[in-house]
Amino acid sequence: MSYINTHILDRELKKGSAELLVLSLIEKRDRHGYEINKLIESRSDGALRFNVASLYPLLYRLEKRGWIEGRWVEKVGQRRRRYYQLTADGRKVLAAQRNKWRDFVEAINRIAGTEPA
């Protein structure tokens, strides 16, 4: 059974954490989509990576919910790009999601025994 479960777990974990990852990465500064994706890839040492088909729908969904806001910015010597920034609502959601994730990981660790008892 393991061959099924690890695959599903992997997908579901990514899905569950994707919003948190994106919101976290634009907490301090505005970033464009490709930058967000590269940071996720590099900071996870290649373990996590979004492709175009999943990243942008996610960004647009967050934008529709009013958690992030995208706007076109033109910088000197660069082409214009769409930068995303966290809104006030997004900030609250991020705080809540962080707490939930922390509780979740702790609970999993306690149950699954990945930490010394």
Partner: peptide
């Protein structure tokens, strides 16, 4: 190869854009 998942892209975008 990334774009070949365009079905997924279209489906995901449809969900968002035609919410």
């Amino acid at each position: 190869a990334e774009l070949s998942e365009s079905e997924l892209l279209a489906r995901e975008l449809r969900r968002v854009e035609h919410q």
